[in-house]
Simulated assay, not measured.
Amino acid sequence: MDRRELADFLRGRRERITPADVGLPAGPRRRTPGLRREEVAQLAYISTEYYTRLEQARGPHPSREVLAQLARALRLSDAERDHLHHLAGTPPAPPSGPSREVRQSIVDLLHRLPRAAAIVISATYEVLAWNDLAAALMEDFSALSRRDRNLVRRAFLGPHPHGRRLYGVSDGQEFAHSSVQHLRAASARYPDDPELAGLVAELQAGSEEFARLWAAHDVTARPTLCKTFDHPLVGPVAVNCDVLDITDRDQRVVIYTAVPGSPSEEALRLLSVVGTQRLDVPG
């Protein structure tokens, strides 16, 4: 534990936060920049004396719980939170499960790609964010429950309208195999996540194919560079498939684009206009 560095770090982060940032009144006689020590202590649910001793480099070794409360009170970023833990001599505990929170900058990025269908998926293949064209090409994810937005569950357990697996993609079989391999690796990273364990158990019980692939213990998946969606309205849509890793959240951005000037690009342009309307349904 580096008491002096920890004290300086806490003081610096306290002084950069305004009372308005945390919903506190500024008051007429505020002399110190940022928050007062007693205000941080109140927000972190610890005593003012204890927090003061930490800032004076004479405090005891804080527990993980205290560090987590201080990180929330001081509005620390993920990197700052980890740094706080290291200064205190207590490395941050690994997350119990994959993150489901998508950074706003990533969400904004999806919507700045009007000619590409783009989604964000978690380590367990849950669709966390999407743009309008992705909803038109694949499915209106906003109309689905969180459970039904999991692509692995969809691939193995359905529904499969008109016998089409996972939106009629040309690499449905390959996707199924690679998703099991990714899920196997995720299980090793998050061995204590009950939700992930429940998903695997459900798939093993409901799909003999999944159970067989899971038993193979494969963890190396080949990247998919292109695929074709069999869309019920515009027909086949051939797209390039690019994947960007968001390593700090263990998420992936999947971007589908068509070759410029191709019939598939025209199909995507039509879908961007039509959206999720079902013009193939009479009435």
Results as ranks from 00 to 15, higher is better:
G23T: 12
R115G: 03
R14G: 03
A41V: 03
V237F: 06
F141W: 14
L76Q: 03
P94A: 14
R153G: 10
A71H: 02
L271F: 09
R153L: 09
A185Q: 13
R147V: 08
A88R: 04
E49S: 14
S187H: 11
R252Q: 15
A117Q: 07
Q56W: 12
L133M: 13
L279N: 06
S207N: 04
R146G: 00
R278M: 12
V281H: 09
E39Y: 01
S63M: 01
A26C: 02
L110E: 07
A205Y: 02
D242T: 15
S77V: 08
G206I: 09
S170Q: 03
I46H: 03
L67W: 05
P236E: 13
G172I: 01
R112K: 13
G12R: 12
H177T: 12
F210V: 12
D193M: 09
E139F: 11
R149S: 02
L137R: 06
L110P: 02
R53I: 00
R115C: 00
A267P: 00
L151W: 01
S99R: 11
T52V: 10
P95D: 10
E80M: 04
R184G: 01
A238E: 15
R37Y: 01
A123W: 03
L84A: 02
T90G: 02
A197L: 10
Q104N: 09
D193R: 06
D78Q: 13
Q251C: 08
G168H: 05
P33T: 02
T52P: 02
D78H: 07
R11T: 15
